[in-house]
Simulated assay, not measured.
Amino acid sequence: MRLVFAGTPAFAAQALEALLQAGHEVVGAMTQPDRPAGRGLKVQASPVKQAAVAAGVPVIQPEGLRLGGRFDAQAQAAQAQLLAWAPEVLVVAAYGLILPAWVLALPPRGCLNIHASLLPRWRGAAPIQRCIEAGDRDTGNTIMQMDAGLDTGAMLLQEAFALAPDETTATLHDRLAAQGARLIVEALARLDALVPTAQPEAGVTYAAKIDKAEGQVDWTQPAAVIERRLRAFDPFPGGSAPLAGEPVKVWRARLGSGQGLPGTVLAWHADGPELACGEGSLVLTQAQRPGGKRGPASAVLKPLGLPVGSRWA
C-alpha cells in the first residue's frame, strides 16, 4: 500500500522498518522535531527520523498540526505535504501529537494506530509502564482504527501474551515493539477482511504519562507494590531512595519474608539489604550511587553503612 508513517521513538521505528521490509510504499514520515537527548543534551533526531532517512523516506517534523493554532504555518505546510503524498493509509505509532480531524479524514482507508496494550485497558501515554505497575498478568498490542477520542477507535486486530515475573519496562518495550511491528504488517495484508470491533465499555483504564516524581520510593507501601514500581520505572525514572543525603537509585528488589517498621534494615543477604515495608519486606538486589554504574546492591550499598536495625533515611 501507499503509506505515510507517523511515529517518534524506537517502538515506532521498528514498525516503520517492518513496513518497509514488507514492501509497502512508504512515501513519507512524520515525527517529532529534533530535541536534546542523552547526558550531553545534544540535539538528536528521533529514532523514526533516523530510520526514515536511512531508507530514503522524506520526513516532515511539524511542532503542531492544529490549523489556526499556535503552529498554524507548520500545520498548513504539513497538510499540503500530506495531500501531495496522497497516502491510502496513515500508520501511527507513539507519534506524540494529537491528530486533528483533518488528518484523520485525509487517507481514504483511514489511520491505523499500533497501541501497546489490550484495549480498552490502558488507553493513553504509558501503557507499558502502567501494566507492570498494576501487576497485570497479560498485555499485548491492539491495531485500531483511529477516531477523535483518546485511543477509543474500533479494534481491528489484537494479540495477547503473558508478562514474565521479572518483566521491566525495558524488556516489555522490546517484546511489544516486535509484536506491534509484526501485527501492523499482518493487519495491512488482511485489511479488507478485518472487521472493526467497537471497544467494550467495561474495563476502560487510562495510562497517565510517567512523572519523574513517581520514582520516589515510599517504604510505607506494601513490598509487592514497591517491587512492581521498580520494574515499571526501569529505565525511567528509576527508583529514587535518598540515603544520608545521597540520591541513591534502587533498580531491582525481590520480596523478603520479614516485617517491621517501614524503612528498617532487617538483615543483610548475599545480594543486598532487606528492608521492612508497609506490608512485608524487600531485599534490594540492584542499586546505583551518583556517578557510578548499576551494580549488586550488596556491593553498592555496603560503603554507606546501614547496619541491621538502622533506618533508611
Score class of each variant (00 low, 15 high):
76 Q>W: 00
279 E>K: 13
41 L>N: 08
193 A>K: 10
40 G>Q: 13
145 Q>Y: 05
47 P>R: 06
54 A>I: 04
83 L>Y: 11
8 T>R: 08
153 G>F: 11
76 Q>C: 00
200 P>D: 13
186 E>C: 08
252 R>L: 12
250 V>A: 01
209 K>A: 15
301 L>N: 02
98 I>S: 08
81 Q>D: 00
44 Q>F: 00
304 L>Q: 09
130 R>M: 12
309 G>N: 07
200 P>H: 13
258 G>L: 07
246 E>R: 15
138 D>R: 13
71 F>D: 07
186 E>Y: 09
34 D>L: 05
204 V>E: 15
82 L>K: 12
217 V>N: 03
256 G>W: 11
262 P>D: 05
23 G>E: 13
162 A>I: 06
105 A>I: 06
178 A>H: 02
196 P>S: 11
19 L>N: 01
60 I>L: 04
58 P>D: 05
219 W>C: 01
138 D>M: 11
157 L>Q: 05
217 V>M: 07
208 A>M: 13
191 L>C: 09
43 V>P: 06
258 G>Q: 07
94 A>V: 02
17 E>V: 01
256 G>R: 07
227 E>Q: 15
268 W>K: 11
102 W>Q: 10
202 A>M: 10
304 L>G: 07
95 Y>S: 02
289 R>V: 05
56 G>V: 01
214 E>S: 14
22 A>C: 00
254 R>W: 09
244 A>N: 05
100 P>K: 03
75 A>P: 06
270 A>R: 14
210 I>D: 04
7 G>C: 03
237 P>W: 10
261 L>Q: 14
202 A>T: 15
81 Q>W: 09
112 L>R: 10
98 I>W: 11
168 T>K: 01
239 G>F: 13
145 Q>A: 12
233 F>C: 11
216 Q>S: 07
165 P>Y: 11
53 V>A: 02
18 A>P: 08
159 E>P: 02
24 H>Q: 13
9 P>N: 03
117 S>W: 12
205 T>V: 12
188 L>T: 14
12 A>C: 02
266 L>I: 03
43 V>M: 10
289 R>L: 12
265 V>C: 06
190 R>A: 15
278 G>C: 01
201 E>G: 15
35 R>M: 09
106 L>W: 12
40 G>C: 03
156 L>G: 08
104 L>F: 00
193 A>E: 11
48 V>R: 04
23 G>S: 14
199 Q>M: 09
309 G>L: 08
208 A>S: 14
124 G>F: 06
261 L>N: 11
267 A>N: 11
200 P>F: 11
158 Q>K: 02
142 T>G: 09
261 L>S: 12
115 H>L: 08
67 L>E: 02
197 T>M: 01
89 V>P: 10
42 K>S: 12
65 L>V: 02
22 A>H: 04
98 I>A: 13
221 Q>R: 15
198 A>L: 10
108 P>D: 10
46 S>E: 04
104 L>R: 09
273 P>C: 02
14 Q>C: 00
168 T>I: 04
4 V>D: 11
309 G>V: 07
303 P>D: 05
77 A>Y: 03
262 P>H: 03
253 A>C: 08
218 D>A: 14
288 Q>V: 10
229 R>E: 07
272 G>R: 00
53 V>L: 15
107 P>R: 12
234 D>Y: 15
89 V>N: 10
122 W>N: 05
95 Y>M: 00
125 A>T: 06
93 A>R: 00
201 E>S: 14
11 F>D: 02
172 L>I: 03
167 E>V: 12
230 L>S: 09
125 A>Q: 06
84 A>W: 10
164 A>G: 06
